[in-house]
Protein backbone atom coordinates (compact mmCIF):
# COMPACT_ATOMS: atom_id res chain seq x y z
CA UNK A 1 0.00 0.00 0.00
CA UNK A 2 2.86 2.34 0.89
CA UNK A 3 4.44 1.92 -2.53
CA UNK A 4 1.15 2.52 -4.28
CA UNK A 5 0.53 5.61 -2.16
CA UNK A 6 3.93 7.04 -3.01
CA UNK A 7 3.47 6.37 -6.71
CA UNK A 8 0.01 7.87 -6.80
CA UNK A 9 1.03 11.01 -4.93
CA UNK A 10 3.99 11.50 -7.28
CA UNK A 11 1.69 11.26 -10.30
CA UNK A 12 -0.71 13.73 -8.69
CA UNK A 13 2.05 16.25 -8.05
CA UNK A 14 3.42 15.78 -11.57
CA UNK A 15 -0.02 16.47 -12.99
CA UNK A 16 -0.25 19.74 -11.12
CA UNK A 17 3.25 20.65 -12.25
CA UNK A 18 2.44 19.93 -15.89
CA UNK A 19 -0.74 21.98 -15.68
CA UNK A 20 1.32 24.88 -14.33
CA UNK A 21 4.00 24.52 -17.00
CA UNK A 22 1.37 24.29 -19.76
CA UNK A 23 -0.30 27.39 -18.43
CA UNK A 24 3.00 29.25 -18.30
CA UNK A 25 4.07 28.33 -21.82
CA UNK A 26 0.66 29.00 -23.28
CA UNK A 27 0.96 32.63 -22.22
CA UNK A 28 4.43 32.80 -23.71
CA UNK A 29 3.77 31.21 -27.07
CA UNK A 30 0.43 32.91 -27.62
CA UNK A 31 0.54 35.53 -30.35
CA UNK A 32 1.37 38.93 -28.92
CA UNK A 33 3.42 40.16 -26.00
CA UNK A 34 2.63 38.19 -22.81
CA UNK A 35 2.69 41.42 -20.82
CA UNK A 36 0.10 42.98 -23.06
CA UNK A 37 -1.97 39.81 -22.65
CA UNK A 38 -1.65 40.03 -18.88
CA UNK A 39 -2.35 43.75 -18.93
CA UNK A 40 -5.47 43.05 -20.92
CA UNK A 41 -5.69 46.48 -22.50
CA UNK A 42 -5.08 47.48 -26.08
CA UNK A 43 -3.00 50.49 -25.09
CA UNK A 44 -1.58 50.12 -21.59
CA UNK A 45 0.56 52.99 -20.37
CA UNK A 46 4.32 52.51 -20.30
CA UNK A 47 4.37 52.63 -16.49
CA UNK A 48 1.84 49.82 -16.34
CA UNK A 49 3.93 47.75 -18.72
CA UNK A 50 7.06 48.52 -16.71
CA UNK A 51 5.40 47.41 -13.47
CA UNK A 52 4.24 44.16 -15.05
CA UNK A 53 7.68 43.52 -16.53
CA UNK A 54 9.20 43.77 -13.07
CA UNK A 55 6.41 41.75 -11.46
CA UNK A 56 6.78 38.86 -13.88
CA UNK A 57 10.54 39.25 -14.22
CA UNK A 58 10.31 39.18 -18.01
CA UNK A 59 13.86 40.43 -18.47
CA UNK A 60 15.15 37.18 -16.94
CA UNK A 61 15.61 33.82 -18.73
CA UNK A 62 12.49 31.74 -19.35
CA UNK A 63 13.33 29.07 -16.76
CA UNK A 64 13.88 31.66 -14.04
CA UNK A 65 10.52 33.14 -14.96
CA UNK A 66 8.90 29.73 -14.69
CA UNK A 67 10.48 29.27 -11.27
CA UNK A 68 9.18 32.64 -10.16
CA UNK A 69 5.73 31.75 -11.48
CA UNK A 70 5.69 28.52 -9.46
CA UNK A 71 6.91 30.31 -6.32
CA UNK A 72 4.13 32.87 -6.74
CA UNK A 73 1.56 30.09 -7.09
CA UNK A 74 2.88 28.37 -3.97
CA UNK A 75 2.29 31.62 -2.11
CA UNK A 76 -1.29 31.53 -3.31
CA UNK A 77 -0.67 34.28 -5.82
CA UNK A 78 -2.59 33.31 -8.93
CA UNK A 79 -2.37 36.80 -10.38
CA UNK A 80 -4.76 39.71 -10.30
CA UNK A 81 -7.87 40.09 -12.36
CA UNK A 82 -7.75 43.49 -13.98
CA UNK A 83 -11.46 43.72 -14.71
CA UNK A 84 -12.41 43.11 -11.08
CA UNK A 85 -9.15 44.51 -9.74
CA UNK A 86 -8.99 41.73 -7.18
CA UNK A 87 -6.77 38.71 -6.63
CA UNK A 88 -7.92 35.77 -8.75
CA UNK A 89 -7.98 33.42 -5.76
CA UNK A 90 -10.43 35.51 -3.79
CA UNK A 91 -12.71 35.87 -6.81
CA UNK A 92 -12.78 32.10 -7.27
CA UNK A 93 -13.37 31.48 -3.58
CA UNK A 94 -16.29 33.93 -3.62
CA UNK A 95 -18.04 32.12 -6.44
CA UNK A 96 -17.22 28.60 -5.36
CA UNK A 97 -20.06 28.25 -2.84
CA UNK A 98 -22.92 28.36 -5.32
CA UNK A 99 -20.95 26.19 -7.75
CA UNK A 100 -20.39 23.51 -5.15
CA UNK A 101 -24.04 23.62 -4.09
CA UNK A 102 -25.21 23.04 -7.66
CA UNK A 103 -22.56 20.51 -8.66
CA UNK A 104 -22.63 18.48 -5.47
CA UNK A 105 -26.43 18.18 -5.37
CA UNK A 106 -26.59 17.09 -8.98
CA UNK A 107 -23.64 14.70 -8.63
CA UNK A 108 -25.25 12.92 -5.71
CA UNK A 109 -28.66 12.77 -7.38
CA UNK A 110 -27.20 11.50 -10.65
CA UNK A 111 -25.12 8.91 -8.81
CA UNK A 112 -28.09 7.54 -6.86
CA UNK A 113 -30.58 7.61 -9.74
CA UNK A 114 -28.08 6.40 -12.36
CA UNK A 115 -26.90 3.49 -10.23
CA UNK A 116 -30.45 2.41 -9.42
CA UNK A 117 -31.45 2.59 -13.09
CA UNK A 118 -28.29 0.70 -14.04
CA UNK A 119 -29.09 -2.07 -11.55
CA UNK A 120 -32.60 -2.22 -12.93
CA UNK A 121 -31.30 -2.42 -16.50
CA UNK A 122 -28.81 -5.13 -15.58
CA UNK A 123 -31.50 -7.27 -14.01
CA UNK A 124 -33.73 -6.89 -17.06
CA UNK A 125 -31.02 -7.34 -19.63
CA UNK A 126 -32.16 -7.64 -23.22
CA UNK A 127 -35.78 -6.83 -22.40
CA UNK A 128 -37.54 -3.80 -23.78
CA UNK A 129 -37.09 -1.68 -20.64
CA UNK A 130 -33.35 -2.23 -20.83
CA UNK A 131 -33.26 -1.26 -24.50
CA UNK A 132 -35.38 1.80 -23.89
CA UNK A 133 -33.12 2.93 -21.04
CA UNK A 134 -30.09 2.39 -23.21
CA UNK A 135 -31.41 4.61 -26.01
CA UNK A 136 -32.66 7.30 -23.61
CA UNK A 137 -29.26 7.37 -21.97
CA UNK A 138 -27.60 7.87 -25.35
CA UNK A 139 -30.02 10.70 -26.03
CA UNK A 140 -29.05 12.57 -22.87
CA UNK A 141 -25.40 11.77 -23.39
CA UNK A 142 -25.52 13.50 -26.78
CA UNK A 143 -27.31 16.56 -25.49
CA UNK A 144 -25.30 19.74 -25.01
CA UNK A 145 -26.02 20.71 -21.38
CA UNK A 146 -26.58 24.34 -22.28
CA UNK A 147 -29.21 23.40 -24.86
CA UNK A 148 -31.09 21.21 -22.40
CA UNK A 149 -30.98 24.14 -20.00
CA UNK A 150 -32.41 26.55 -22.56
CA UNK A 151 -35.23 24.18 -23.46
CA UNK A 152 -36.00 23.54 -19.79
CA UNK A 153 -36.20 27.30 -19.16
CA UNK A 154 -38.46 27.72 -22.19
CA UNK A 155 -40.85 24.99 -21.03
CA UNK A 156 -40.89 25.20 -17.24
CA UNK A 157 -40.10 28.85 -16.61
CA UNK A 158 -41.18 30.98 -19.56
CA UNK A 159 -44.19 28.98 -20.75
CA UNK A 160 -45.55 27.15 -17.71
CA UNK A 161 -44.26 29.70 -15.14
CA UNK A 162 -43.68 26.94 -12.60
CA UNK A 163 -40.12 27.92 -11.74
CA UNK A 164 -37.91 31.01 -11.89
CA UNK A 165 -35.86 31.46 -15.07
CA UNK A 166 -32.50 32.36 -13.60
CA UNK A 167 -30.37 33.45 -10.68
CA UNK A 168 -30.05 31.94 -7.22
CA UNK A 169 -32.40 34.18 -5.25
CA UNK A 170 -35.32 36.43 -6.01
CA UNK A 171 -33.71 39.86 -5.91
CA UNK A 172 -37.02 41.74 -5.93
CA UNK A 173 -38.28 39.95 -2.88
CA UNK A 174 -35.34 39.11 -0.61
CA UNK A 175 -36.15 36.48 2.00
CA UNK A 176 -34.75 35.60 5.40
CA UNK A 177 -34.30 32.33 7.27
CA UNK A 178 -36.47 29.49 6.01
CA UNK A 179 -37.89 31.62 3.22
CA UNK A 180 -34.37 32.13 1.91
CA UNK A 181 -33.65 28.40 1.83
CA UNK A 182 -36.92 27.81 -0.01
CA UNK A 183 -36.12 30.57 -2.47
CA UNK A 184 -32.69 29.08 -3.24
CA UNK A 185 -34.21 25.62 -3.58
CA UNK A 186 -36.78 26.73 -6.15
CA UNK A 187 -34.01 28.45 -8.10
CA UNK A 188 -31.82 25.37 -7.78
CA UNK A 189 -34.41 22.95 -9.12
CA UNK A 190 -34.05 23.55 -12.87
CA UNK A 191 -30.25 23.85 -13.12
CA UNK A 192 -29.87 20.87 -10.82
CA UNK A 193 -32.32 18.75 -12.83
CA UNK A 194 -30.47 19.68 -16.03
CA UNK A 195 -27.09 18.67 -14.60
CA UNK A 196 -28.52 15.48 -13.12
CA UNK A 197 -30.09 14.35 -16.39
CA UNK A 198 -26.85 14.95 -18.24
CA UNK A 199 -24.86 12.90 -15.74
CA UNK A 200 -27.22 9.96 -15.22
CA UNK A 201 -26.24 8.05 -18.40
CA UNK A 202 -22.63 7.44 -17.36
CA UNK A 203 -23.66 5.85 -14.05
CA UNK A 204 -26.39 3.86 -15.71
CA UNK A 205 -24.06 2.40 -18.30
CA UNK A 206 -21.21 1.83 -15.89
CA UNK A 207 -23.37 0.05 -13.32
CA UNK A 208 -25.05 -2.05 -15.96
CA UNK A 209 -21.84 -3.22 -17.58
CA UNK A 210 -20.05 -3.80 -14.31
CA UNK A 211 -22.94 -5.88 -12.92
CA UNK A 212 -22.97 -7.86 -16.15
CA UNK A 213 -19.27 -8.46 -15.87
CA UNK A 214 -19.38 -9.57 -12.24
CA UNK A 215 -22.28 -11.90 -13.02
CA UNK A 216 -19.99 -13.80 -15.41
CA UNK A 217 -17.24 -14.27 -12.82
CA UNK A 218 -16.41 -17.82 -11.82
CA UNK A 219 -17.20 -17.33 -8.15
CA UNK A 220 -20.73 -16.21 -8.95
CA UNK A 221 -21.23 -19.28 -11.12
CA UNK A 222 -19.93 -21.39 -8.25
CA UNK A 223 -22.40 -19.81 -5.83
CA UNK A 224 -25.14 -20.54 -8.29
CA UNK A 225 -24.04 -24.15 -8.52
CA UNK A 226 -24.25 -24.50 -4.74
CA UNK A 227 -27.91 -23.62 -5.02
CA UNK A 228 -27.76 -20.23 -3.35
CA UNK A 229 -30.76 -18.08 -4.27
CA UNK A 230 -30.29 -15.49 -7.01
CA UNK A 231 -31.42 -12.77 -4.64
CA UNK A 232 -28.75 -13.57 -2.07
CA UNK A 233 -26.04 -13.81 -4.70
CA UNK A 234 -27.05 -10.47 -6.14
CA UNK A 235 -27.32 -8.63 -2.84
CA UNK A 236 -24.33 -10.08 -1.12
CA UNK A 237 -21.76 -10.58 -3.83
CA UNK A 238 -22.65 -8.95 -7.12
CA UNK A 239 -23.68 -5.59 -5.76
CA UNK A 240 -20.64 -5.16 -3.57
CA UNK A 241 -18.20 -5.86 -6.38
CA UNK A 242 -20.09 -4.05 -9.09
CA UNK A 243 -20.51 -0.80 -7.22
CA UNK A 244 -16.78 -0.03 -6.94
CA UNK A 245 -16.22 1.39 -10.46
CA UNK A 246 -19.32 3.53 -10.03
CA UNK A 247 -17.84 4.99 -6.87
CA UNK A 248 -14.69 5.97 -8.76
CA UNK A 249 -16.76 7.65 -11.45
CA UNK A 250 -18.60 9.50 -8.70
CA UNK A 251 -15.32 10.68 -7.25
CA UNK A 252 -14.09 11.91 -10.61
CA UNK A 253 -17.35 13.80 -11.22
CA UNK A 254 -16.93 15.42 -7.83
CA UNK A 255 -13.53 16.58 -8.98
CA UNK A 256 -15.21 18.74 -11.56
CA UNK A 257 -17.28 20.38 -8.85
CA UNK A 258 -15.68 23.74 -9.45
CA UNK A 259 -16.16 23.69 -13.17
CA UNK A 260 -18.34 20.86 -14.38
CA UNK A 261 -21.41 22.97 -14.11
CA UNK A 262 -19.92 25.93 -15.96
CA UNK A 263 -22.11 25.77 -19.08
CA UNK A 264 -25.27 25.10 -17.11
CA UNK A 265 -24.44 27.89 -14.67
CA UNK A 266 -24.16 30.29 -17.57
CA UNK A 267 -27.55 29.36 -19.00
CA UNK A 268 -29.28 29.84 -15.64
CA UNK A 269 -27.22 32.88 -14.61
CA UNK A 270 -26.21 30.89 -11.52
CA UNK A 271 -23.67 33.02 -9.62
CA UNK A 272 -20.87 30.41 -9.62
CA UNK A 273 -17.38 29.97 -11.02
CA UNK A 274 -18.78 29.14 -14.46
CA UNK A 275 -20.31 32.59 -14.72
CA UNK A 276 -17.07 34.13 -13.53
CA UNK A 277 -15.32 32.24 -16.32
CA UNK A 278 -17.74 33.56 -18.92
CA UNK A 279 -17.08 37.11 -17.75
CA UNK A 280 -13.36 36.44 -17.96
CA UNK A 281 -13.76 35.21 -21.56
CA UNK A 282 -15.95 38.10 -22.63
CA UNK A 283 -13.64 40.72 -21.17
CA UNK A 284 -10.47 38.90 -22.23
CA UNK A 285 -9.39 38.80 -18.60
CA UNK A 286 -6.56 36.30 -19.14
CA UNK A 287 -5.10 36.22 -15.61
CA UNK A 288 -8.55 35.33 -14.28
CA UNK A 289 -9.13 32.72 -16.99
CA UNK A 290 -5.76 31.07 -16.43
CA UNK A 291 -6.29 31.19 -12.69
CA UNK A 292 -9.62 29.41 -13.00
CA UNK A 293 -8.04 26.77 -15.24
CA UNK A 294 -5.23 26.17 -12.77
CA UNK A 295 -7.62 25.92 -9.84
CA UNK A 296 -9.69 23.38 -11.77
CA UNK A 297 -6.64 21.37 -12.81
CA UNK A 298 -5.33 21.32 -9.26
CA UNK A 299 -8.62 20.35 -7.67
CA UNK A 300 -9.20 17.66 -10.28
CA UNK A 301 -5.82 16.06 -9.73
CA UNK A 302 -6.07 16.25 -5.95
CA UNK A 303 -9.55 14.73 -5.86
CA UNK A 304 -8.79 11.97 -8.38
CA UNK A 305 -5.73 11.17 -6.29
CA UNK A 306 -7.85 10.82 -3.15
CA UNK A 307 -10.38 8.70 -5.03
CA UNK A 308 -7.70 6.39 -6.40
CA UNK A 309 -6.15 5.92 -2.99
CA UNK A 310 -9.54 5.18 -1.43
CA UNK A 311 -10.22 2.75 -4.23
CA UNK A 312 -6.95 0.94 -3.67
CA UNK A 313 -7.75 0.75 0.02
CA UNK A 314 -11.16 -0.77 -0.72
CA UNK A 315 -9.94 -3.14 -3.44
CA UNK A 316 -6.59 -4.82 -2.73
CA UNK A 317 -6.33 -6.07 -6.34
CA UNK A 318 -5.53 -2.54 -7.47
CA UNK A 319 -2.65 -1.80 -5.14
CA UNK A 320 -1.03 -5.17 -5.67
CA UNK A 321 -0.87 -4.79 -9.44
Amino acid sequence: MKRYLLKRVTTGLLTVLIAIVLNFFLIHIAPGDPIRIMAGMDHPSSEQLEALYVRYGLDKPLLVQLGQYIVNLLHGDFGTSYTYNKPVVSLILETMGPSILLALTSCVLAFVLGTLLGLFAARHQGRWMDNLLSYVSYLFDSMPPFWLGLVAILVFASTLHWLPTSGMVNLRNPQQGFGYVLDVLTHLLLPCATMTLIQIPQYLRLTRSSVTQVMQEDYIITFRATGMSEKTIFRRYVLKNAILPTLTAFGISLAYVVAGAALVEIVYAWPGTGRLMLNAINRRDYPLLMGIYLMIAISVSVITMIVDILYAWLDPRIRLK
Binding site: L22, I281, Y286, V300
Partner: peptide, 13 residues
Protein backbone atom coordinates in the same frame (compact mmCIF):
# COMPACT_ATOMS: atom_id res chain seq x y z
CA UNK B 1 -6.08 17.31 -17.02
CA UNK B 2 -9.51 18.76 -17.75
CA UNK B 3 -9.43 18.85 -21.56
CA UNK B 4 -12.31 21.20 -22.20
CA UNK B 5 -10.80 23.97 -20.12
CA UNK B 6 -7.41 23.53 -21.67
CA UNK B 7 -9.01 23.86 -25.11
CA UNK B 8 -10.95 26.84 -23.88
CA UNK B 9 -8.00 28.90 -22.65
CA UNK B 10 -5.91 27.95 -25.66
CA UNK B 11 -8.62 29.07 -28.06
CA UNK B 12 -9.11 32.24 -26.01
CA UNK B 13 -5.39 33.01 -26.25
Amino acid sequence: LPTFFLVLITVAL
